[in-house]
Amino acid sequence: MMWTTLKQIRKTGIIRENVPADLELVAINNIQDEILKVLGRALTIRLVDAGSCNGCELELNALGNAYYNLEGLGIKFVASPRHADMLLITGPISRNMLSALLITHEAIPEPKLVVAVGDCAVNGGVFGESYATIGAASKVIKVDHLIPGCPPSPAEILQGILNAVHYRLKKRPYFD
């Protein structure tokens, strides 16, 4: 069993090296250095799903696969908001999630960065404002950066996260 496992690991190799050099990914190789320069350590993120359809979560999860290798880039999703630098929000802010969202936001230490991921959190998406949803995240929390898309691709999310860090430093965006 051990042998089959090792063989499979060897056969799979390091996937990042096999990535077809699609435009988006070329620039990603430098992200780790950038993050280190900017933060001096790993960037930590807390996600709050405020009523998403789970599509955005699928792409956030995909960021962890060997192709995007999020942790290898020095970006980490953390369980406790107190350990987080950045809050990612998905979904059209369901009223049932509002207070949990606000409490989580409150628990993240300053200076915090807030990023709305996906059309729902950006502008309410197909759900908009109703008795059940508030719509754009920016209606209830100061949002620093928007990543539109339904859902945005992992590469778009990565670009967005990095842009958010750069804007904070009043620098030019990393990706134009």
């Binding site: 009523g51 369901s94 197909v126 759900f127």
Partner: peptide
């Protein structure tokens, strides 16, 4: 219920053809 988005009601704003989007 935390992800309740009022979908059933929102459908009333759609036509049979466009409802597939929701």
């Amino acid at each position: 219920g935390y992800a309740h988005k009022g979908v059933d009601k929102a459908f009333e704003r759609y036509s049979g053809l466009s409802g597939v989007q929701l």
